[in-house]
């Protein structure tokens, strides 16, 4: 499966209501060690309620200047969240989440405040 096919898909909850757009896919390098780097396991998806596109990497990032620009881009991405892979029920033209899915903070670990 090719990732750009997954990105931009609509994300629906168990009732079929749109909860946002899939804007990114999060991997964790904790799998079986390969030749040089451990394998990258799909951890979850980043869902954005606002815009369908990520923009310039401001979201999920500690970059916060120039201040006005950062605020504007944050506002465009207000309320994005992470959903774990095991909370995904099915993928077709959209991504269907399980009834029990949990919304997690999309922040990258080193940037926690």
């Amino acid at each position: 499966m090719i990732l750009s096919d997954l990105i931009h898909k609509k994300v629906l909850d168990a009732e079929g209501t749109v909860v946002g757009n899939l804007v990114d896919v999060r991997f964790v390098i904790d799998g079986a060690p390969g030749q040089l780097l451990a394998s990258a396991r799909l951890h979850g998806i980043i869902v954005s309620r606002g815009t369908a596109s990520t923009f310039l990497g401001y979201e999920r990032n500690s970059a916060n200047s120039p201040f006005i620009l950062a605020k504007f881009l944050e506002w465009r991405h207000r309320g994005s969240f992470l959903v774990r892979w095991r909370d995904i029920a099915m993928i077709d033209d959209a991504v269907h989440l399980r009834a029990s899915f949990q919304r997690l903070s999309p922040n990258l670990p080193q940037n926690r405040s």
């Binding site: 951890h43 919304r103 903070s105």
Partner: peptide, 14 residues
């Protein structure tokens, strides 16, 4: 939202 914990380096594809 609650923070997630990770067991390794985190990479967002995009």
């Amino acid at each position: 939202y609650p923070e997630e914990t990770y067991a390794g380096r985190v990479l967002d594809a995009d």
